[in-house]
Design a protein around this nucleic acid. Sequence first.
DNA 1: GAGGTATCTGAGAGTATAGTAAAATACTTA
DNA 2: TAAGTATTTTACTATACTCTCAGATACCTC
Lengths: 94, 94
Amino acid sequence: MKFNEQQIELVTELMKSIAHPIRMKILCFLMEGEKNVGEIEQQFGSTISNISQHLTVLRKANIIDRRKEANFMFYSLKDNNILKLMETLKNNFC
Amino acid sequence: MKFNEQQIELVTELMKSIAHPIRMKILCFLMEGEKNVGEIEQQFGSTISNISQHLTVLRKANIIDRRKEANFMFYSLKDNNILKLMETLKNNFC
DNA sequence: GAGGTATCTGAGAGTATAGTAAAATACTTA
DNA sequence: TAAGTATTTTACTATACTCTCAGATACCTC
């Protein structure tokens, strides 16, 4: 069996980014559509600072996009593949 | 939006277990069928000890099963959901 | 431009994870 | 039962992750 090291690296980085309770919840929440940081924060128990850091992790992993509007930042799922992955997770493991 | 904390915890634990290059490769390899530790070790560069530890992680996360035969341990994917997840990963991200 | 709101960044401490090497266990065969 | 093979466990070290707190930005309104 032959592995494409780069792809393995890429997929595991992606998985790692998703593999955290707060980030998983953020992604579930974003399945509903675009949300700003305050809206996200209200869903969970953590601080804005902490959530902002998790959002950065997701953004650097190319999982979510952000858009600025006045002094709000709106975050959203980046593409369909992530949505599909989340749905697979939900269907098979939730 | 309401989250089932326990399920989130479960899914993220699962993701965390998968989110490592060696473990990802082990799972890919096990998609072919049952393998023993030596066979797995020969696929990658790491030591048997290290691989054994990763197998333990996967086993504790309920992702793989093992079966003893003489002094060999045979490992295999535990169920269909894992297979489906791996396929989704392959299709959408590889 | 002063004050307020929303978000981000950086430092520090605590915890978790990964890899390596050495010793331990379990089984087989001579 | 001694020696050999396959695998696991333990101990240790290094690195990475997570959270909290204290500023720092950016933008808006008065």
